[in-house]
Amino acid sequence: MKQFGQLTTYFFILALFFTISSCGGTAESTENLGNENTDNTEKLEKAKTILHSLPAPVDIASILFEEPGAEFNKEILNPIENSKKYNGNKDLALNLGIYTADLSYAGFFKQNQVTLNYIKTTKEIANNLGISNSFDNKHLELINNNQVDKAAMQKIISESFMNTDAYLQQNDRPEVLTLILVGGWIEAQYLATKLTNGSTTEKPELVQRIVDQSLTLELMFALFDDFEKSENIMALKPSFSKLKNSYKKMNGGLTPDNYKEFCTLIEEIRTEYVI
């Protein structure tokens, strides 16, 4: 009789589980805007679920470095030796983003050996963060054997970042993913500003692309709002607020002075991350 009672209980539990599972629903942050103006049929109501899709480092690299005048300079990368210095989720994640931007930059200019070295470094940092399988071994072999053109290289880097993205989503670690994206964005901006030598006239198209990135910063602030309880993300906000002001000045009229000020700010933030 006791066994029958236990069996009945387990049956009930399984039934309850399948009921819960079939309820569906979404895990992302939600925003309810029931009072949206719907008078204008051309305007669309906001959705219940919002996803802020910050660009991946490979995307930012291709936006910035496809401009004329951009070239490869190994000296401005974060040295691989620094990777041993990083501990703790925040430092590891920010620098995973930084190294991913570095390898995207090297990959963009088809610097195969440098790209491979940086891939190895990102794999180590990813492992320390508990992220596995970011790069496929068959892809590494193709790069090693010089069997990839520029587009194929970008696809490999892009796909590997998607693996990291997927892994972190699957394991519910949005904070780490955000830190990686922030680190990648800062590094791409740092590399680009370095290539301009802080001058608005040497590579004007590249400078314009750097200024255009205020769009990404706008989205980044919206994403930060989803992490009000995250100390690690909130700690980034003060320096990013300074960046926002700097962009505001440049968007109001780009001058050699406000661009130099921006370059200094980017370098300061990046130095804080790479230690």
């Binding site: 569906g24 629903g25 979404t26 992302e28 906001k46 959705a47 219940k48 679920t49 919002i50 996803l51 802020h52 899709s53 910050l54 660009p55 991946a56 480092p57 490979v58 995307d59 291709s62 587009a151 970008q154 696809k155 880097i157 892009s158 796909e159 970042f161 998607m162 993205d165 997927a166 989503q169 989205l219 919206a222």
Partner: peptide, 20 residues
């Protein structure tokens, strides 16, 4: 070239999502 981000979500009939 894929942009490197994977925006995927499980939705039910009647649901919607905004990707910025």
């Amino acid at each position: 070239i894929p942009d490197g981000r994977l925006n995927s979500i499980t939705l039910s009939e009647g649901d919607n999502v905004d990707v910025y």
